[in-house]
Design a protein around this nucleic acid. Structure first.
Lengths: 224, 224
DNA sequence: TGTACATCAGTGAACGCGCGTTCACTGATGTAC
DNA sequence: TGTACATCAGTGAACGCGCGTTCACTGATGTAC
């Protein structure tokens, strides 16, 4: 889908088709993806023109159709890449050997580290998938949200049942609370960064992870 | 700015100008605001055309220029209205008589009740103000974010210093955590609502307020 | 070895469409004289 | 009382611009024969 597959009858003459995945494809495709991720995150999908993306990637607008069919195809490719980054990190952290350090700090650390490395991901998701009602959203729900929830929710429930986390809270609400607490500063940074004097960088990560773990584990009530 | 102020030299003849605030102005303006809030929240600002808004409000596209000058003016009016709704509710709840019930439950309840009544507000804010870098954003930061922060942060700090909330957490990070936890389900509902089986309605509010207060106050660690 | 040729990555100009905005205009309203 | 007239809320058609997309084309590549 991503690389060109001309639909002609095979021939024995001429240059043979490249390998299916086209590993040697020029980096124009790569530059288009990077430019689109940056611009979509900063200006929105509808607010960003293909001419902008192409200029930023230093190619012709026609290359979008060449590699991604159309503008929606480009968004889908950008989203898929971002989503796989997050899912991959979560899978690695949550499905390892059963006995590791507790679930909550592990989840918070991996999730926040991934967001810090790629803060454009939640910004694009929140803008384009949450609010637009397109076929792409359904695909996104199936390919990402459902997997993320089924990765996190059962493990949270296990911890609750095992008594390692309190068991009187609604699991689904708790999933939302934890994710919201983690992701909000990354989404709001363009607005709140100056006001609250922070930037998304390793220093922020280093402060925000222990803060989040401490708040989530023990809450705001002072120790007796 | 909102109502028409033709710039001609005064005359003693003819129909006199309406009162400055034009309290009798037809409801076309009202319908435009409502339609714009709904459509901007669902489809984004750049993704929504003035023809759509006008059709939804049952007026001519020219009415946007008539009442709001241009598309940006319409967004500004929509945002201002939403922002005042939230700020008004917060002010009423946080600046009352000094001795009331504790700060945290009061804040959570009022904030979530306002969001439940107007879930389009955080959706438009998150889409249009957080990610687009326009002059409107600066105005928004000054008129809303700064006021909201200066309304909440000092009171949080007072509670910490008075020992009614634990004092070892960073105030600015705590503000973000609390807001993120509260607002996330409202932003994510179009995406996560079906998946986690919830809708934004009074029933949700009734469950989410005590959940949020309990989680924020005591955290996830089981009681000893 | 030479060369024919299919495919490669990529170009540049053009297409029609829908957008935000403008403009001349309208019938109703209601006070001043 | 009658009426002139400025302003009201609002219309409908048109403007030019920038958008996403398409299309004919190009020089380079590299295997088959």
């Amino acid at each position: 889908m991503a690389t060109r597959k001309p639909a002609r009858k095979p021939s024995r003459r001429g240059r043979p088709p490249a390998a299916p995945a086209a590993p040697l494809a020029g980096d124009a495709r790569r530059r288009l993806l990077d430019a689109a991720a940056r611009l979509f995150a900063a200006g929105g999908f509808a607010g960003t023109s293909l001419r902008q993306v192409a200029r930023e990637a230093d190619v012709t607008p026609a290359m979008v159709s060449y590699y991604f069919r159309d503008k929606d195809g480009l968004l889908e490719a950008v989203l898929t890449e971002g989503v796989e980054l997050i899912l991959g990190a979560l899978r690695g952290a949550l499905t390892g050997p059963a006995e590791q350090d507790p679930l909550l700090p592990r989840f918070v650390h991996v999730y926040l580290a991934t967001l810090t490395a790629h803060p454009w991901i939640p910004r694009i998701i929140v803008q384009e998938v949450i609010s637009r009602d397109t076929p792409l959203r359904q695909l996104f729900v199936d390919r990402f949200a459902r997997q993320a929830v089924t990765l996190v929710a059962p493990r949270l429930q296990d911890e609750m049942r095992a008594g390692r986390l309190r068991g009187d809270l609604d699991v689904r609400l708790t999933v939302m609370s934890v994710i919201g607490m983690c992701v909000f500063p990354y989404i709001a940074e363009p607005l709140l960064g100056r006001l609250l004097d922070y930037r998304i960088d390793p220093d922020f990560l280093e402060a925000f992870v222990p803060h989040t773990v401490a708040l989530l584990e023990d809450g705001l009530r002072p120790a007796p």
